Structures are given as structure tokens and as C-alpha cells.
Amino acid sequence: MLETPEAMISPPLPTVWPRFRQPLRLGVMASGAGTNLAAIAQSIQSGQLHAQIQVVVYNNPQAGVAVRSTRLGLPTVLLNHRDYASREALDGDIVQALQAHDVDWVIMAGWLRCVTSVLIDAFPQRILNIHPSLLPSFPGLKAVEQALAAGVTLSGCTVHHVELAVDSGPVVMQAAVPVQMQDTAVTLQARIQTQEHRIYPAAIALAAMGG
């Protein structure tokens, strides 16, 4: 079987990942469909990622992630950002929910809200995010559309530590995705998302090792 361009650019990940003395206790934050949550859960179920998902926090009452999380039997908490007067107040309740479920790593899996020092200071160097571009190129919203508008031939995704500036923290892992001439935002996003599902669980293990 011929390898896809993505496979040739992004080498295979190891089939055996590090096992920690205790499973990593993850709190997942999501705003959308929850496909990265599903990929992380699958890696845990398969024994690749030695972790457990303690809680899923979501901010959009209509988000599909709530259905996925419930089907997986995970504790699920809705904190609707529209109910809060400030980002700090929302983050304060997020911190309380994560701490109540004994979380030690926070995993943003399609969290579409800027976070504040309230959250970052509660979990220093233990918050990860995944972004659909090869950072530092195209930070912020609509990264795929930004890439297409710029006419780049290579895009991808990045797992990085979260800092106050949007999409600015140290990179943990990246995967490259060639941009095809006929690509639209939908088709390119779909191929990038495949790589997100591939690298995010491995990046969590790497970050926990100090990588």
C-alpha cells in the first residue's frame, strides 16, 4: 500500500508509549463535536496512553461532545459561558470543577474560548491545546481559512502548552498536512483533523514526560 503524503511527512508514532507510575488524570475541555476526546479515550482504552479522563467540561449546551462523553460514561459538566459576566468568573468555576475531579492535566480539545490566568495559574505548565495549523503560522480563529488565503502548500496541526497569548505556548508535537490544489476549508480541515487524532494522545504522554 502506498503511503499518503501526510504519512510520508509525519513519521509513524511509537506503538508503545511510556507508562507512568499512576495513570495521568485528565480533565478535557471542549466546545464542539468532541472528536479529539474520542481519539484520546480510544488511546486509553487500547492501552497506548496510560491515563484516565476524570471529567469533561463543555461550554456550549448544543455541543456534540456532551453526547460522546455521556456515551463513554465520563463525568460531564456544562459551564455555559453565556451565564458568566467575565472570562475570569468562568475560569474560576472551571478550576473548581477540575479540582473537584482530581485532575492533574488539562486537555483543551476544541475549546473555543480564550482562557485567563485564573485557569493557567491553577495548572501551571499542565494545560495543552491543539490548533489546526503549524504554529507559529496562523494562530487564532479560522486557521484553516487563513492558510488557504495565504496560498501555503503545507499546513497541519500543533499541540502546545497554553499561555496567556493565544496559541503562543511551547510546542509539544506537530504533524504536517500538504495543501492540495482543489482543497476547500472543509476538505483540508478533515485531513488536518485526522492528524490531530493521531498526535494528540502521543503529545499528552510526551508532555507528561517533560518533553
Rank of each mutant, 00 (worst) to 15 (best):
L188N: 07
S46V: 12
G156Q: 05
V55T: 13
V55H: 06
F20H: 10
W111F: 15
A207K: 05
G210Y: 10
A7H: 12
V118A: 12
P132N: 02
Y58L: 08
A175E: 03
E6R: 06
G27Y: 15
V77N: 03
A39Q: 04
A66Q: 09
A175D: 05
A97L: 05
Y84W: 13
A41C: 06
L119M: 09
E163Q: 13
E88T: 10
V77I: 15
G32L: 06
V65T: 01
Q52Y: 05
R113Q: 14
Q52M: 07
G110S: 06
A89D: 12
Q180T: 08
G47H: 07
W105E: 03
T35R: 04
T153G: 07
Q182T: 09
Q96E: 13
P170K: 12
S86C: 08
G34H: 11
I130M: 13
G73E: 11
I94V: 15
V57N: 03
A89N: 08
Y84C: 08
S137P: 00
I130V: 15
T158G: 00
V57M: 02
A150Q: 13
R126E: 09
I130N: 10
Q125D: 14
L206Q: 15
H160Q: 03
R68V: 14
A63Q: 01
L90I: 08
G47N: 10
P75G: 08
Q189I: 00
A207Q: 08
A205E: 03
L135F: 04
D91I: 13
A185D: 04
T194Q: 15
D167C: 07
A85M: 13
T116F: 06
Q22I: 14
A7F: 07
T15P: 00
Q180I: 05
R19L: 08
I120Y: 00
R21Q: 14
D167H: 09
H81T: 12
F20K: 06
V57Q: 03
Q182N: 08
S86Y: 11
I44Y: 01
T15L: 09
N60L: 07
R19P: 01
A149F: 02
N129L: 03
Q189C: 05
A150P: 06
S43I: 01
A202K: 04
Q96N: 12
I94R: 15
A205D: 08
M181R: 15
H81A: 12
A190L: 03
G210T: 06
